[in-house]
Design a protein around this nucleic acid. Sequence first.
DNA 1: CAGTATTGATCAATCGTTTGATTAAATCAA
DNA 2: TTGATTTAATCAAACGATTGATCAATACTG
Lengths: 215, 215
Amino acid sequence: MIESAPRPPEGTGAALIEAGLKLFGKQGFSGTSTREIAALADTNVASIAYHFGSKDGLHTACAAEVARRLSAVATPSVPPDPTPDEARAILDSTLRALAGFLLTSPAATDVAPFILRLLGSGPDEAMTTLYASVIEPKHREFCRLWALATGQAPESESTRLAVFAAIGQLVYFRVGLPVVTRRMGWGRIGAAEAGAIADTVAANLHAAIERSRVP
Amino acid sequence: MIESAPRPPEGTGAALIEAGLKLFGKQGFSGTSTREIAALADTNVASIAYHFGSKDGLHTACAAEVARRLSAVATPSVPPDPTPDEARAILDSTLRALAGFLLTSPAATDVAPFILRLLGSGPDEAMTTLYASVIEPKHREFCRLWALATGQAPESESTRLAVFAAIGQLVYFRVGLPVVTRRMGWGRIGAAEAGAIADTVAANLHAAIERSRVP
DNA sequence: CAGTATTGATCAATCGTTTGATTAAATCAA
DNA sequence: TTGATTTAATCAAACGATTGATCAATACTG
């Protein structure tokens, strides 16, 4: 059963979710024991069953928390009737905000690996929830902005794929961060490194928009 | 038993690697039991210890097999002194070949999830091997081609990031395939769908090259 | 026969979950 | 305000099941 209303976390339950988010993301679901989670949350193993029913229940709760945090970001404020240039500027700033979150925010360091694990596990319940509540609506909104910026149809195949490609670059930099940092010779990701990545992605965004613009 | 399936490598060891590749990628390392692997490989559990020493040994062997398969792809034949347009054409065809492999090849359906798990597990030995033997050399070669196509420095920060972004789009489409197929309303990825994705990525590649070209 | 490969059985360790006891706060009756 | 009772939450301990690993015995092969 999925709780539709995301509640603000507090107490032992919240500590368990935070611990689960961190450990599930770092070691995977099967790779994390309930005792390990309880230890990190500084509570007893039985608390998991008490608050969430089971280990699976905790995992579902963690996915809901991820959806909650993701919704907090990437919510652009769109003026009522944006011009093409305005739409492009909104896409640019939203993409940069997303880059800052994914690459530097402490909240993302727990959230991002967790989502990565979800993706690899195929379409289970947690993934379906995350898709319906965050991914699909955001992607649809981006498609609308893309259409306004380029003049193309919002839900055409090329538009949807172009938006995926634009976001995909960013997601890849987060997913492949271990690879990227090694190749770039970076010790860790700071504001400067995140800025360089954001510039690259933003430049590609503008080039792609310019290219698919209809006269 | 089921022996009709085309199995290029032969012997129990090869069957174990193939089973490990499939199950490790699908369920993760900890999520896969040695008995499950042995059952899929149609052999005894003890065979794993006999051939690879331990479960970890089998996992390392699987990573080596992944590196072997990856090296087989994405090896562009570069003429001795390519013109900018030739370099761009090589990048284009290589990217399309990579798209075909990642999205449609049966070999990739086992390899790709395995690598994804590897990425999420941080910089361990298997990831280091894969990086040194495949990722780093390929990326460096792409950077050289990018430099030839745009006139920029091969190892500049912007070049390396641009190449990452170009490849990243493609990798994302593979990583986020469950999400993409759902949003696109695709049942599964066929030649047409892979072609549409390859066109999108290739279009972005050309736009990015055009944009960063120095006169 | 000698050497390689495979098998079924068994090991201690760890897994997720359940249990009954314990505590502190909330609720009720007089 | 009292004292009794209920409820929510946490705890240590133990449960059966499963894990990776091990080993002697067996089968295959040249």
